[in-house]
Amino acid sequence: MPVRRGHVAPQNTFLDTIIRKFEGQSRKFIIANARVENCAVIYCNDGFCELCGYSRAEVMQRPCTCDFLHGPRTQRRAAAQIAQALLGAEERKVEIAFYRKDGSCFLCLVDVVPVKNEDGAVIMFILNFEVVMEKDMVGSPAHDTNHRGPPTSWLAPGRAKTFRLKLPALLALTARESSVRSGGAGGAGAPGAVVVDVDLTPAAPSSESLALDEVTAMDNHVAGLGPAEERRALVGPGSPPRSAPGQLPSPRAHSLNPDASGSSCSLARTRSRESCASVRRASSADDIEAMRAGVLPPPPRHASTGAMHPLRSGLLNSTSDSDLVRYRTISKIPQITLNFVDLKGDPFLASPTSDREIIAPKIKERTHNVTEKVTQVLSLGADVLPEYKLQAPRIHRWTILHYSPFKAVWDWLILLLVIYTAVFTPYSAAFLLKETEEGPPATECGYACQPLAVVDLIVDIMFIVDILINFRTTYVNANEEVVSHPGRIAVHYFKGWFLIDMVAAIPFDLLI
């Protein structure tokens, strides 16, 4: 008679799926529990143990900040960024110097990925580790590398530091407007667009060049630039800015003055950032001319202004700041037409079709709590990747769950009947059967004279019903998954307890 339990259901295979997918890609990662103190490590794979030199037993239950890997060259700011990422709910990448158990130093890129439950609360953290440099290539500990984003994938490793954006290309926007319009339909740009040429040739750093990471940081200074100062900065030398009595002219307006920039070969870094931020506020060169004239017309309804409409929906549905990093990277690809469009465009503009998908598509409701890094690593669709929660398995109709209350009560009843059979069957065979043979035949009273025979008949009927119930009862397979398919249940029961239950259900007393 089957006594099969499996009270692990309803099970959740999400954690096993993450481990299996990460292991298949030869990654070095740990999984931490966000619900406990210090976000203790609950799993670390073999790749991480080989990377740091510690065994799994030495890593388990330690804080996922990996303070046991810190050393003299470990930056405090990087460690603080990892700790801050564990307090938030967004994906974050941090470069930090770690030390192995043998004392060797290596520069590592740590990717902190939160995993949320159905309520939107962070319950786990996945920390992925990628070695960037070994100890002989690690720089000085005073050099802070965590304020910069990861290198873009479309640049060669040897040319990542030679990417320079020439400031004269930004200063000569109005001069290039006529050349853009003359391109017409034969050019790649839309009317009114501004073409910015980027020099990728390796050259020595000069005062006129600005690194790509500095251009990325310009967006942080746009908020500090007032509207009046932006307007004066875009007017140009024809209309000098008016300053109040006793007030000095704005240095932001002076930063885009061609006369002032041409007199000296070098520009201050602050002026460069502010000038680029001011130019980015204009949607095209037409807006710059309109600002000089004193009238700013409404933005025209053409394809170039609607190019950012799908980007707005993608940004609203993005799951991490990696989408913004990807957008900034692609927006700086050289030799393309940049349409400086305000994100607050007309909502009635139709979304044009684009061959290049900048932001990841909208994630469906079932995966809105899973970050983009987890979705990318697992390579699963929205119909396959579940949320991290207890999910009731989908069972067929008329199927009994093996952990249901009805099955528990039924098993206790069958257990009592088995005990009765084990006690009274030998007793009936030894004593009652002998008395029946010696006594007179009682054929007239039937079952009324033999109450134990009636009980034995009921017990046999219950055993037959138990066999039928076992054909529709779920079970737990070797992978700790609840199986509810009727065919698989029948095959599993035939290979197991079916023969024993059938022999126990045969009414031998009635056959004798």
Rank of each mutant, 00 (worst) to 15 (best):
P2S: 06
H7R: 07
V8D: 15
A9H: 15
Q11E: 11
Q11K: 09
T13K: 06
F14I: 06
T17G: 13
F22Y: 14
E23S: 11
Q25I: 07
F29I: 01
I31E: 01
E37T: 14
N38I: 01
N38R: 14
C39W: 15
A40R: 11
A40P: 15
A40L: 13
A40I: 06
Y43W: 05
C44P: 01
C44V: 15
C44L: 01
D46W: 04
E50N: 12
E50R: 13
G53N: 01
Y54T: 01
Y54A: 01
S55D: 08
E58C: 01
V59D: 01
Q61C: 14
P63F: 01
C64R: 01
C66H: 01
D67M: 09
R73H: 05
R73I: 08
R76M: 10
R76I: 14
R77A: 13
R77S: 12
A78Q: 05
A79N: 01
Q81T: 13
Q81V: 13
Q81G: 11
I82T: 01
I82W: 01
Q84I: 05
Q84A: 13
L86Y: 01
G88W: 13
A89K: 13
V94A: 06
E95L: 09
I96F: 01
I96H: 01
F98S: 01
K101Y: 01
D102C: 12
C105H: 12
C108W: 01
L109W: 15
V113Y: 11
P114A: 01
V115R: 02
V115C: 08
K116F: 12
N117W: 06
D119H: 08
G120C: 07
G120V: 06
L127F: 03
M133H: 14
V138K: 10
G139F: 12
G139I: 06
S140Y: 15
D144I: 12
H147E: 08
R148D: 07
P151D: 14
T152F: 09
W154V: 06
W154M: 15
W154K: 15
L155T: 14
A156S: 12
A156D: 07
F163M: 15
R164Y: 06
R164N: 11
L165A: 15
T174Y: 06
T174N: 05
A175T: 08
E177C: 05
S179E: 06
G183T: 09
A188L: 06
A193Y: 01
V194D: 01
V194H: 05
P202M: 01
P202Q: 06
A203Q: 06
A204E: 03
P205N: 14
P205C: 06
S206Q: 15
S207L: 06
L210R: 05
A211D: 15
E214M: 05
T216H: 06
A217P: 15
A217G: 13
D219G: 08
H221L: 10
A223I: 13
A244I: 04
Q247P: 15
Q247C: 10
Q247V: 15
A253H: 14
H254P: 12
S255D: 05
P258Y: 09
P258I: 07
S261Y: 09
S263V: 08
S263R: 09
S266C: 07
S266V: 12
R269Y: 13
E274W: 15
C276I: 13
V279H: 12
A285C: 15
R292W: 07
A293Y: 04
L296Q: 10
P298Y: 01
P299Q: 14
P300V: 15
H302W: 15
A303D: 05
S304W: 14
P310V: 11
P310D: 15
P310H: 15
R312G: 11
L315N: 15
L315G: 12
L316H: 14
N317D: 15
D321S: 14
S322Q: 14
D323C: 05
L324S: 12
L324K: 13
Y327C: 15
S331W: 05
S331Q: 07
K332M: 05
P334N: 08
Q335V: 03
T337E: 15
N339L: 01
F340S: 15
D342Q: 05
G345C: 05
L349P: 09
L349C: 04
L349S: 03
L349A: 09
A350D: 09
S351C: 13
T353P: 15
R356N: 11
P361S: 14
P361E: 07
I363F: 05
I363P: 13
K364C: 04
K364F: 06
N369E: 06
T371Q: 07
V374N: 04
T375L: 14
Q376K: 10
L385K: 09
